[in-house]
């Protein structure tokens, strides 16, 4: 089954992300870079969960540690993975260490595709594939050194990022050069909220058309 997988297809990426974590081998950033260089297939996944969960996840798709996770998968004799996110200093260091390794290796940049996924629990809400390496633009330089941000800017590597305040409409964007693609926009609006907004709008419009003095008369 594993041999027939193609990491350029969303179904196969999801298949790997849904495997129990015990079936995959965790690799440190140094080990991961070696594994990626030797892998038959590889990918980096920008995983944006809309629901955070502190309980340990059974698989990588259910991860909810932080508002983003950047996962690296290498398929060889076994499936190795490494991930970074923003919740712990160790995870921020790993995130930056992997970006730094890719900055130094143009061959790896060209040969590693990127998938941006937006999920709720284990449900996939939206996805976008990029043919080469891209990084998650959060916590860059944290627990690593700020100069990496300058090198990334100079490299013009594509990236994805989450925008918008938490608990409000949220967006995930993919940036490549001057081009920006909206991957996902969460719209949260119920009838009560809509009516309230309509009423506020009417009041505001009414106030503009009829000044308060006129109403008194």
């Amino acid at each position: 089954m594993i041999k027939n997988l193609s990491l350029e297809k969303i179904e196969d990426v999801l298949y790997l992300l849904r495997r129990p974590r015990e079936e995959l081998k965790y690799l440190s950033p140094e080990e991961m870079v070696t594994a990626l260089r030797e892998a038959e297939q590889k990918i980096t996944v920008h995983h944006y969960p809309l629901r955070l969960s502190r309980s340990p996840s059974k698989n990588l798709l259910e991860l909810g540690e932080w508002s983003y996770h950047q996962i690296y998968l290498a398929m060889g004799k076994e499936i190795g993975y490494c991930l970074g996110h923003g919740r712990s200093s160790g995870a921020r260091e790993r995130h930056n260490q992997m970006i730094d390794a890719f900055l130094e290796d143009k061959v790896l940049q060209q040969s590693t595709p990127t998938a941006v996924l937006v999920t709720h629990k284990s449900l996939l809400l939206a996805y976008y594939f990029h043919q080469h390496y891209a990084y998650v633009a959060h916590d860059v330089g944290m627990n690593w050194g700020g100069e990496i941000a300058l090198r990334l800017k100079r490299s013009r590597l594509p990236c994805s990022e989450r925008r918008g305040p938490i608990f409000s409409d949220e967006e995930v964007w993919f940036k490549e050069g001057e081009t920006e693609k909206l991957v996902y926009r969460a719209v949260r609006e119920d009838i009560h909220q809509r009516r309230m907004e309509e009423r506020l709008r009417e009041m505001a419009e009414g106030n503009q058309e009829t000044p308060p003095e006129k109403i008194k008369n």
Partner: peptide, 12 residues
């Protein structure tokens, strides 16, 4: 000091 956390994570 690195304090190990679950699932191969750690905190400095």
């Amino acid at each position: 000091l690195r304090i190990p956390l679950p699932q191969n994570d750690f905190q400095y």
